[in-house]
Deep mutational scan, measured.
Amino acid sequence: QSSFEIPDDVPLPAGWEMAKTSSGQRYFLNHIDQTTTWQDPRKAMLSQMN
């Protein structure tokens, strides 16, 4: 996992939702293809902008 956290005020891509496990770990739900991931989809968006 990357060492940086994206602030919560940065919006997720369309169709995504952020949730937390009972222990507080963030994960991401993709409602478009109905998958979940630990990888923040905003990181991919930001790396494409740089």
Rank of each mutant, 00 (worst) to 15 (best):
E17Y: 00
F28M: 01
G15T: 04
A44C: 12
I6Q: 07
W38T: 07
D40T: 02
E17T: 12
A44M: 04
Q39I: 08
E5T: 14
P13H: 00
Q1I: 15
D9F: 06
M49G: 15
S23L: 11
I6H: 15
Q34A: 09
S47H: 15
L12P: 07
P11R: 06
S3Q: 00
Q39T: 10
M18D: 04
H31S: 09
H31F: 01
Y27N: 01
P7D: 15
T21F: 03
P41D: 00
P7G: 05
E17L: 04
Q34G: 09
N30G: 00
N30L: 00
Q48N: 07
T36R: 04
S22L: 10
A14N: 12
T35K: 06
Q39G: 06
W16N: 06
L12A: 04
E5N: 13
I6E: 03
M49S: 15
K20P: 03
A44G: 14
T21W: 02
T35R: 06
T21Y: 03
S2T: 07
P41W: 01
M45W: 09
S2D: 15
N50E: 10
I6G: 05
I32F: 00
G24I: 00
L29K: 10
I32G: 06
F4R: 10
S2G: 11
S23I: 06
R26N: 15
Q25A: 14
P41S: 01
V10G: 09
I6P: 07
L29T: 08
Q1H: 01
S3R: 05
D33R: 09
M49I: 13
P13A: 01
A44T: 12
S22W: 05
P7V: 13
Q1D: 15
D40L: 00
N50T: 03
G15D: 06
R42S: 02
L46P: 14
D33I: 07
S47P: 14
L29H: 05
L46M: 14
L29S: 05
N30M: 00
P41V: 00
A14V: 13
K20N: 10
V10L: 09
G15P: 03
D33W: 09
P7K: 13
Y27P: 01
M18C: 09
I32R: 10
R42E: 02
P13R: 00
L46F: 14
K43W: 06
M45P: 13
T21R: 02
E5V: 12
D40H: 04
H31P: 05
S3I: 07
S23Q: 14
G15H: 11
T35G: 03
E17G: 13
T37S: 11
P7F: 07
M45E: 14
P11I: 07
E5C: 12
P11Y: 04
P13D: 04
S47I: 12
V10P: 08
R42P: 00
S47G: 14
D8V: 07
D40Y: 01
D33F: 15
A19H: 08
Q25P: 02
N50S: 13
D33A: 11
T36C: 10
F28H: 00
D33H: 07
D40S: 01
D40A: 01
S22N: 15
G24C: 03
E5I: 11
E5H: 09
P11T: 05
S2Q: 07
A44H: 10
N30R: 03
N50Y: 08
T21C: 06
Q1L: 11
P41H: 00
D9H: 12
T21I: 05
D9L: 06
S22D: 12
D33N: 15
A19Q: 09
A14K: 15
S47Y: 03
S47T: 11
D33S: 12
Q48I: 07
P13V: 01
T37D: 02
I6S: 13
Q1P: 05
A19M: 06
R42C: 02
L46A: 10
L12W: 03
I32A: 04
W38C: 04
W38G: 05
M49W: 10
T35L: 12
K43R: 08
V10S: 13
Q25R: 08
D40P: 03
Q34H: 07
T35H: 03
I6A: 06
A44V: 09
H31D: 04
Q34V: 02
P11D: 02
Q34L: 07
L29Q: 10
H31C: 07
Q48H: 09
T21Q: 04
F28L: 02
Q48E: 12
N30P: 00
R42L: 00
Y27I: 03
W38Y: 12
W16M: 00
S47D: 13
P13E: 04
T35I: 15
A19V: 10
D8F: 05
F28E: 01
P11A: 10
L12D: 01
L46C: 10
V10K: 09
W16H: 03
Q34K: 15
T35Q: 06
M18A: 12
G15C: 05
P13K: 02
A44I: 13
Q48T: 14
S3L: 01
W38V: 07
Q34W: 03
R26T: 13
Y27D: 03
L12F: 09
K20E: 13
P13M: 01
A19P: 00
V10F: 08
A19N: 10
T36S: 05
P11L: 05
H31W: 01
A19S: 11
S3T: 08
T21P: 03
T37P: 01
